[in-house]
Design a protein around this nucleic acid. Structure first.
Lengths: 153, 153
DNA sequence: TATTGTTATACTCTATAACTATA
DNA sequence: TATAGTTATAGAGTATAACAATA
């Protein structure tokens, strides 16, 4: 049932009990949709959303260590191991030596990693445009600022 | 490192590689934060976010069937079985008969379920206020509309 | 044949403890 | 002692296939 406002408040005759006018509920639906769309966009490159994020971070700061990636992307260190393992096995990422600390790895993109990332970034940009278009009259900077404040709850 | 704009673009010297100005990335951080905050608010009632959603939907449309809940909340039917099982075992929800269809259950809240939900709704309202405060200058209706368009990607 | 609820199962994501090798 | 990475494991949350009872 679509109302005059364009807001769908019921499905069939079943109400959402107020959830439909809640930021949290729609935030979840939006986030799931965005990740699903991006995952589909990255499918040709066999990359998950997290993989792209990791590649972007490494590209931006080559030589950084796994711990640093975990901090900025909020990925637990144990979980990051598998991710880097896979990217390394595919020849996209290199675990180089860190001079002065033999415990850590200096991460960098291989030539193949760079090449794949450039392609993936195009797909990501197309996806991002769809999201931005969906913002409509909401200013992007204001939206980012609001989301950031919510993220800091 | 906090910049003049107040936007944190780096952590230490590690850049996020453009992710920090992406709606999708901040959408994820915001959604995780909201769910974490709500989960904490519901802790005294031993309810998860999904449990509250289910109770709200049943309250809004008593007598509805499991299938209908799954549709509006986007929960797979098999997964809903366990959720209703637990709420029923706690005496919060009742699986009554549906006249004319012995396959289905008419779900409703018990007296205890009603009572617990009223308490939980107060906690939820307090949580929701925090989220709304974080919106700042962003209009709630505009935000909901934008999130809805993104959810429909 | 189709549908409601169910069972079993699997896959992804995320989280924690404990280990190793270094520092 | 503390830290980087690792291993093993466990817990959510989510997904699909197939079944029984009923429509």
């Amino acid at each position: 049932m679509i109302e005059a406002s364009g807001r769908k408040e019921t499905i069939g005759s079943v109400s959402l009990g107020g959830l439909e006018t809640t930021v949290g509920f729609l935030l979840r639906l939006a986030q799931v949709a965005v990740f699903k769309d991006l995952l589909a966009a990255l499918k040709p490159f066999d990359l998950r959303v997290t993989d792209l994020s990791v590649l972007l971070v490494i590209e931006a700061t080559p030589g950084l260590q796994q711990r640093a990636i975990g901090e900025v992307l909020r990925i637990q260190r144990p979980n990051l191991v598998t991710i880097i393992d896979q990217l390394e096995a595919r020849g996209l990422v290199r675990r180089g030596p860190v001079q002065g600390d033999r415990r850590a790895y200096a991460l960098s993109l291989t030539k193949e990693g760079e090449a794949l990332l450039q392609e993936a970034k195009i797909a990501h940009a197309q996806h991002d445009r769809k999201v931005l278009d969906a913002l409509g009259d909401v200013d992007k900077a204001q939206m980012l600022a609001a989301l950031e404040r919510i993220a800091a709850l």
